[in-house]
Design a binder for these strands. Structure first.
Lengths: 113, 113
DNA sequence: AGGGGTTTTTGACATTGTCAACAAAACCCC
DNA sequence: GGGGTTTTGTTGACAATGTCAAAAACCCCT
C-alpha cells in the first residue's frame, strides 16, 4: 500500500527517534544529549527546539509544559512526544531505506563494506 | 571511532543508494525510476541531476559523459558513480539509524509497530 | 525586588529539496 | 546538409529543512 505519510528530513528523523527512546524524559536538553552521544550529531539546543516546533505544526509530534522542577532556578521543562503520524513516518522511512539497502547488497556488481 | 564523514540529506542518501544499486546503468532516467518505484519518492528529473551535481562538488559522487546510445535521437548519457567518501557517508548514516532504532526497541516504555 | 541559574523562544542565515523552463545532442528524412 | 523530432542534460528560482547566536522567560533564593 503506497502510504503518503510525510517525508522526514534526516535530522527530523533522528530527533523523533531520540524522543521515542527517551519516553517521558524527552525534553530539550536530554534530546540534545541523545543526539550528541548516540547519533553523532552535535547540534545546538535551539536546533532541537526549532525542529520539534516545526514538526509539531505538521502533526508529527506533540508537546506540553511540565511542572517547575523545584531545584535551584530553572524554567519548567517542555515535554515532547511523537504522534501516531510521526511513528508512521518513521516506519515508512525505515522500510524504504531497508529495501534500498537490500537491493544494493543483492543484485548489483558493487561491493560495499 | 567517531568518523567525521559528511552528513547526508535524506534525498541524497536515497540517490546514492539508487546509484549504487544501478551500477554501470546509473544515469538520470534510471535513477529517477529507481527512486519512484522503490523509494516512494517521485521527484522530477531535474531534482536528480541537481542533487548529484551538488554531491559531486562535495566529493560524494563522480560522473562522466558516455557514448551516444545509437537509438533514435538522444543526447549522450551522463553516468554516475558513488565515491568512496559517498559509501563511507552511507554506511555512517545507516549505522547511526540502526543504533537509534535498537535503542528505541529495547530500552523504552514506548511500543512501536 | 534583584540576581544568578536553568530552560525555551526568536530572528536570521546556510544548506538541501524541488521543479519548470531552457539548452544540447543525436538521429531521421527529404 | 538543414529542419524536425526525440532523448537527455543544465539553469534559475523558490520552498523546506538545518543551524545557531542572542534574547526572553521563568524559578528559586536572599
Amino acid at each position: 500500500m503506497a502510504s503518503h505519510s510525510q517525508q522526514l528530513g534526516d535530522l527530523e528523523e533522528l530527533v523523533l527517534l531520540a524522543v521515542l527512546r527517551l519516553g517521558d524524559q524527552a525534553y530539550g536538553a536530554s534530546i540534545r544529549e541523545e543526539l550528541t552521544a548516540q547519533a553523532d550529531r552535535s547540534v545546538s539546543i535551539s536546533t532541537v527546539y526549532v525542529t520539534l516546533m516545526r514538526m509539531e505544526e505538521k502533526g508529527l509530534s506533540r508537546s506540553w509544559m511540565g511542572e517547575p522542577s523545584g531545584e535551584r532556578g530553572g524554567k519548567a521543562k517542555r515535554h515532547f512526544q511523537v504522534s501516531p503520524e510521526g511513528i508512521q513516518a518513521l516506519e515508512a522511512s525505515r522500510s524504504v531505506r531497508e529495501r534500498m539497502w537490500a537491493r544494493v547488497e543483492r543484485g548489483s556488481a558493487a561491493h560495499v563494506g
